[in-house]
């Protein structure tokens, strides 16, 4: 396998940048949403659950189109953000938003499952020892959901790395700007003689995915040992 060309390198580094930002920024929100769905009873809970899961069920192209309507140059939120100096449409930040939205349901599901597995009686015990809700979350809940948190993060990251439909609809396929690995593979396959470049990127994709999987396995094992209490 030959070395990567500059355009391919660009796609790889851009994908890593987009996915990292998408994962880091959506993680706190995913924890909050997972906690709300797992533990709180409030009006509109079913609605929230639906909205969170929508990107998982809708065609990605539709999600991308909705993002374009809302965050695009003519969308209301998009205009507001633009006046603050943040352009999302046809920009790598938009690719990060699309990746975050698409990965969000997967993160929430993994984290929610782990929160539901935490024995609420342990949190009660912490309360009787003087810990406020926030302290209970930091010192009891968070350490106990660490395996789910790690799994959710890696799942979200992997999803972000592979996102194609919503990204290409929302931010198009501009080399160096919004061309992530999947978009680049797609572009290479559209031109004659692009197969070898596409094959190189496919290999990189497989390696990255496998790496993420192995990392999540060993991290989950480490966290489970810590929580297991032996």
């Amino acid at each position: 396998m030959a070395m990567l060309g500059p355009e391919e390198w660009q796609a790889v580094t851009l994908s890593l940048k987009v996915s990292t930002w998408a994962t880091l920024l959506s993680l706190p929100l995913a924890v909050l949403a997972a906690h709300a769905l797992a533990r709180w009873r409030f009006p509109g809970r079913t609605l929230l659950n639906g909205v969170v899961h929508l990107p998982l069920i809708m065609p990605p192209v539709v999600t991308g189109y909705v993002l374009l309507m809302v965050f695009g140059p003519s969308g209301s939120v998009g205009r507001a953000l633009q006046s603050l100096g943040l352009t999302l449409a046809f920009n790598w930040t938009g690719a990060a938003l699309a990746a975050a939205v698409m990965g969000f349901p997967l993160m929430v599901r993994a984290i929610r499952l782990s929160i539901e597995a935490v024995d609420p009686r342990l949190e009660q015990a912490a309360a009787t020892l003087g810990a406020s809700r926030a302290w209970i979350f930091v010192t009891v809940t968070l350490p106990l959901i660490l395996p789910g948190l790690i799994a959710g993060t890696i799942l979200g990251f992997a999803k972000a790395m592979g996102e194609f439909g919503a990204t290409i609809t929302f931010v198009s396929n501009i080399p160096g700007q919004t061309q992530t690995i999947p978009s680049a593979i797609y572009a290479f396959l559209q031109v004659p003689g692009g197969e070898t470049a596409a094959a190189r990127l496919v290999t990189i994709s497989i390696i990255l995915a496998l790496g993420a999987l192995l990392l999540s396995e060993s991290a989950a094992r480490w966290a489970a040992r810590r929580v297991g209490g032996q």
Binding site: R121, L122, A125, L144, G229
Partner: peptide
């Protein structure tokens, strides 16, 4: 508590 409820981590 009856079931101790020690923090396992």
């Amino acid at each position: 508590f009856q079931d101790a409820r020690l923090f396992p981590h």
